[in-house]
Design a protein around this nucleic acid. Sequence first.
DNA 1: CGCAATTTTCAAAGCGCTTTGGATCAGGCG
DNA 2: CGCCTGATCCAAAGCGCTTTGAAAATTGCG
Lengths: 343, 343
Amino acid sequence: MNLKQLSLKLGLSQTTVSRALNGYPEVNEATRLRVERAAAQYQYRPSTRAKGLATGKALAIGHVIPISTRHEMVNPVFGDFIAGAGETYARNGYEMILSISDDAQEEQVYRGLKARRAVDGVVVHGPRIDDSRIRLLHEIGLPFVVHGRSSGVDLPYAWLDMNNRHAFQRATDFLLDLGHRRIGLVNGMEFMDFAHRRRDGYAMALLARGIPVDPAIMQSHEMTEVYGYQATRDMLAQDNPPTAFLYSSLVSAIGARRAVEEAGLVMGRDVSIITHDDDLSYLKNGGDIPIFTATRSSVRVAGAKVADMLLAAIADPDLPPQHILLEAELMVGRSTGPAPRKD
Amino acid sequence: MNLKQLSLKLGLSQTTVSRALNGYPEVNEATRLRVERAAAQYQYRPSTRAKGLATGKALAIGHVIPISTRHEMVNPVFGDFIAGAGETYARNGYEMILSISDDAQEEQVYRGLKARRAVDGVVVHGPRIDDSRIRLLHEIGLPFVVHGRSSGVDLPYAWLDMNNRHAFQRATDFLLDLGHRRIGLVNGMEFMDFAHRRRDGYAMALLARGIPVDPAIMQSHEMTEVYGYQATRDMLAQDNPPTAFLYSSLVSAIGARRAVEEAGLVMGRDVSIITHDDDLSYLKNGGDIPIFTATRSSVRVAGAKVADMLLAAIADPDLPPQHILLEAELMVGRSTGPAPRKD
DNA sequence: CGCAATTTTCAAAGCGCTTTGGATCAGGCG
DNA sequence: CGCCTGATCCAAAGCGCTTTGAAAATTGCG
């Protein structure tokens, strides 16, 4: 069933039917009702493509998911983010289109999206320090919102970020307050902006108390379980091992627990652990009492907000770029405790 | 840059330019070259929407991601599956469009996709027993491939599935061979077809050795870490606790390890654990030596194959429905060992 | 060289929608 | 009654592409 057939069936012109359905005022309320009823009856839905062609809008938002080339890894956060954003799109009649891309073709993917006029805007995932995509999108004139920020970029752009620096500063302070003086950092890849900021917050907290930042107890990698395990195991085996650790992801923290237990230590007593927690639906940090003390910020909520920002920016292109900075919540769980006394 | 502008610039008709770019034979090889060069120079890419309108194809594949209403959970497997499928689509000039939907609106989402002519086909995720979506898609005539199968559906349909029954039968046999006689099952929701089949395989293996299937040591739930923990803890607290467990997901198995250690037991000695492992990129089951003994089958590979099947089915609608049954690999890790002697 | 057979190119229609610029119709007013 | 207004409705153009049917250019061959 298309517009023409529907209008024929109703004995009306396509114009009138189109207007009735799109809520224009120049159509009699009675006929509008008649049209709407018929549309429902015949399950008529305008073709997105035709509508897009006619209006010049794509009615679609692109998400370009970077896949780390070396590690072939998909960010586990992705599913929940998309779930948040998807609801917003559906409510507003937008489709979500996904592209997978490794770092090498990333630019081509964005250019392609623009040239094919496939989307009205895109969400930039996993921004790196001084991320070239921001300049690129500015240049080709594709509206976008960044999930995260990119240090070093001086162009204005819209973003939603979690306050990574503050979260890790606070987490570090919390450990310092518990008496820990040697705190390991098991971070994500530090060319990723979020990891860079987290490290910053960590370092700031240490320096504020006159504690030196020691590269020997700082690691940076893709945040897998195995990495969390290895990094922790290696640091615990050092001469002057940390009594506490900070993790950038619950997944790595899980690996950490494995290492701690394998070393015959008890988490929360011999070793304290704090992790960042994206509040993923399938990886809740325990029930009422968190397993790990954590800085929590829901990535699903972030997805919904980013989608809102992008749709708003598309609706009104003159709007100045919006910024949202979410604060993580510090949840005290059972993985932290006072620093063990030195005997 | 659109077709018209490009053809003007070349002094050719739109027809010729279009044909040159789409590889039709009735165009001089010299002009084709000239056209292709110009297209590259001006970064010309045909508008997907216009092309779709003209050809009647959407050049897009839909993925409808079910979100469990009660648990608001996104399947963690999803990211990797999409990564596998996405590459195939990109290579073939297709877009991937994603819709989020809870169980209640699922039917409307598929109908909408069809009515709006937004996709040429869809991938059905997370099939349930006697899944109504299969009949629906047949009815509305939207090509599809199911990732998994649906017991009880008598209509023919294309699917790719992992041999769940066999995998769990084999895993159970493995434990039985180690001397275990009391084996717990920590399964996914059993209205999900895969969980149903896994339970079947488990039960068959037990019955083949004359061991009764005991509901007291079988649980079924969304496969979260917390669930794995609680189910294991509860079963271990029973009078006649299992000496071995089977898990439907690595995530739950991680929770299991937590419960085992909390109970002061040692995994692989006091308690044996086997889990299914989807080989997710961010949740590898250890390095060379698996942490958990596991039945492994890459969901990313599954994604790529499903995409291939769907594109083939769309290209040739007369093709009979294809079926692919993948066998899981049994990886022996450090979480299993001989059944502890009864003292 | 001339004519038919090919090759190469093109104008125009059509895909399903929106939107512009009128038409038509009823009602109101002098 | 005639004209103007506002409310309804409509025909047709246009969005950017593909594809049909035909024209123009080239080639082959006697």
